[in-house]
């Protein structure tokens, strides 16, 4: 309150220096060695990258042909392939997102430590970990080998990837809820299912819907990628066009992908804003 209050410290002497304490390493010399070593390693690593300049020049030339293809996209000569590819991709995207979200809800609930018993939690977390540890392409290669070329393998791949993504984020969201609301439901004598439906669901539902829209986005983009390893869809069409050096058709496919991704992006962000 006042300067004369007992216990207040004496006014500091002038010229007393102050420096922000370092964030990571307290000892000065050690900090110098660690950071210096890192810079040295970086310099050495960059110097070992071999650059074949004549090959780069050749690449530029091919790139130029590609750019020319882009300037004259050809939508017509392979139009049936393109339409078929997009229909397959969109079907794959929608079905796998719906299936993946439906399957991910029980797993996400089970993977939330604050509402699931330990054994259930362990199993669900294991499922999430397995699903998330493989990139879509690796899973797609596996499913193509199991079920043959085509969109069914793609559907399974995207569903599998969606489960890990959605379940993990849903579980984290449930763990972050305001416990007071769930506690209040418990105090009224609500059963576990009622606490889930009344105390937890209203808190996580808007984000669940938003994430599903986001995942729909991701699944469409992934469906183009996994087509390249044989899982059907627009990726397969694109791959064939590249193999035939039909850069104008490939350009048409890429342009359409960009358009659809942008449309999905805008509509999903609009929807997410609406449901908050």
């Amino acid at each position: 309150m006042s300067a004369s209050a007992p216990g207040a410290s004496a006014p500091a002497a002038r010229g007393r220096r102050w420096k922000r304490p370092p964030i990571f390493i307290q000892r000065g010399w050690l900090r110098l060695v660690v950071y210096g070593g890192f810079v040295l390693y970086l310099a050495l690593a960059i110097s070992t990258v071999e650059v074949n300049w004549s090959r780069v020049a050749e690449g530029m030339e091919r790139g130029w042909r590609f750019v020319q293809g882009f300037l004259t996209p050809d939508f017509t000569s392979r139009s049936t392939d393109i339409v078929k590819g997009f229909v397959e991709s969109l079907t794959m995207t929608l079905t796998s997102t719906v299936a993946g979200v439906i399957l991910s809800i029980p797993i996400g609930v089970g993977a939330a430590r604050n509402i699931a018993p330990l054994p259930v939690y362990a199993v669900c977390r294991a499922i999430v970990a397995v699903s998330r540890s493989f990139q879509e392409i690796i899973i797609a290669i596996l499913f193509v080998a199991m079920f043959g070329f085509g969109p069914f393998a793609g559907f399974l791949t995207l569903t599998f990837a969606t489960i890990g993504f959605m379940a993990k984020l849903l579980a984290e969201d449930i763990e972050d809820i305001d416990e007071g609301q769930a506690e209040a439901m418990r105090a009224t004598g609500a059963s576990w299912w009622q606490v889930l439906n009344w105390g937890i669901q209203p808190q996580v539902l808007p984000r669940l819907v938003g994430l599903s829209m986001y995942r729909l986005d991701i699944n469409f983009r992934e469906s183009a990628v996994i087509g390249i390893v044989g899982a059907g869809g627009i990726g397969a069409t694109l791959n064939v066009a590249m193999d035939r050096y039909e850069y104008d058709t490939a350009a048409a496919v890429l342009l359409l992908i960009i358009l659809i991704v942008m449309a999905a992006e805008y509509s999903s962000s609009w929807l997410r804003k609406r449901i908050q």
Partner: peptide, 24 residues
């Protein structure tokens, strides 16, 4: 039970919050 920070389910309506007293 009545709580310090009200502990209402924020995204539910007033009526739903009152009816939640019947969950048991």
């Amino acid at each position: 039970m009545i709580f310090q920070e009200y502990a209402l389910v924020e995204r539910l309506t007033v009526m739903e919050n009152v009816l939640s007293g019947r969950l048991g």
